[in-house]
Design a protein around this nucleic acid. Structure first.
Lengths: 233, 233
DNA sequence: TTATCTTTGTGTTATAAAACACAATTACAA
DNA sequence: TTGTAATTGTGTTTTATAACACAAAGATAA
């Protein structure tokens, strides 16, 4: 974890940012009160029980957010890419983190001080509404996941995860290869299954021509079929 | 669904309300712009796909909020009692409802117009923060549920549900009987299991002296043991 | 370069929980 | 009040998936 003293303006200035509604002066406050840090692949950014210090924005790299369940079994509940936020739930709920975040690629994150953020929310109604809307979407996602992870069968769960990975990270230039390279274990932890079953089911999908696999590179060959497997459950 | 033209001030004025931070004038606006409605036990308050018209507050009765999953199988994701809100996620996310709400007792609900609410959020920072905090808590709950419903075994899931019912609705005067009377099917749909298994496992708990059952009346005899079953998974 | 650890892959066994089938009871409506 | 439907309860069978065991390939470090 190396401190860097550059400004990663993108976290605040990118076109999809909730901070777009801020005035130039307000943005300036944020830019002044943020710190940037570098994390190596595999590093823990925060873990269950830690106290949140501020709003974390991912400037570079990818992150998995997970909870540990029965017997330490890991369930991935979110994945983040630039310029998404992580750990904001605990920040606003007031307590400590109830999930952990680990870099799945080398990452740069920047942290905005909590006090500054709260002050901005209090004074800028549009920012408030943006944050409320973000939470509402995230809650909808979480509720949907609860149902599909409990009700769908292995094939449906894995298919849904692959679609989720596409929705989140998109494809490479070939318009087919998922732009994220996860271990089979991570794919399993995302899909609520054992690593063996993730491996096995990925192989089955490949033999059915739905995807093709080359190490951690997953190519979606038949998006429609994948969607159908996901929908069937 | 009978229209009633009384004012159910409690939704806005009760001591735990997020609206407590409003000025008297702001409260007056809310009171003027709300409508109250009566629902019989079993009535649908809203269902998946409906468009939210305003913020729904439960003034009397109890409500289950659920999603339909694979093959129409119902998963209860929330339960509400006075003076809790329901359906606010869709309201703020902007789309239609992705869950349904059904009265499990005769209910009175009041609805605050969306526009008024948005206007208040825009101008009152403390209200914004209160709503953001409510969302953050709810999201934490949902994430935790995802993990326990997928990872815990039947006994653990049922035990957790009973504890949840206690946390939400409390005990009767005897300090042991759950203050909510659900069908075995609802208990099953809350705990992600079949009705048969809910019935069976409740019986087992009773024979172990953890609870005692009399129809839909569930008495918690050994709260510590119940917590242990839940924790073990 | 070799040794060690991690990840991937595959076959087999064990088991938790669903699915099914059918009483018995209770609620409800005609 | 009698018939019908819904709910509760229990035993049996089936099945999806975890658990286990081990081999092969790759990555990592000494």
């Amino acid at each position: 974890m190396v401190q860097k003293n550059f400004k990663c303006d993108n976290c605040i200035e990118n076109k999809d940012s909730v901070f777009n509604v801020l005035t130039p002066q307000e943005k300036e406050q944020l830019l002044k009160s943020h710190t940037c840090t570098f994390f190596k692949k595999g590093d823990i950014i925060f873990k269950e029980g830690d106290r949140p210090s501020g709003l974390i924005c991912l400037s570079e790299g990818k992150v998995k957010v997970f909870k540990e369940g029965v017997g330490g079994r890991e369930q991935i509940i979110r994945m983040a890419k630039p310029f998404g936020f992580i750990g904001y739930r605990a920040l606003f709920a007031g307590g400590n983190y109830i999930s952990s975040a680990v870099a799945i690629e080398d990452c740069t994150i920047c942290v905005v001080e909590k006090d500054i953020l709260i002050r901005l929310i209090r004074t800028n109604g549009d920012l408030s509404l943006g944050i409320i809307q973000a939470f509402a979407s995230e809650l909808g996602f979480s509720n949907s996941r609860t149902v599909t992870l409990t009700q769908k069968h292995i094939r449906g769960r894995l298919a849904e995860s692959l679609i989720f990975l596409h929705d989140t990270f998109g494809y490479e230039q070939d318009d087919a290869t998922l732009k994220v390279y996860l271990s089979r274990e991570d794919i399993a932890n995302l899909s609520n299954m054992t690593t063996s079953n993730a491996i096995r089911t990925l192989s089955t999908f490949a033999s059915e021509g739905v995807i093709s696999i080359d190490g951690r590179k997953i190519k979606v060959m038949d998006h429609y079929k994948l969607q159908r497997i996901s929908d069937l459950g």
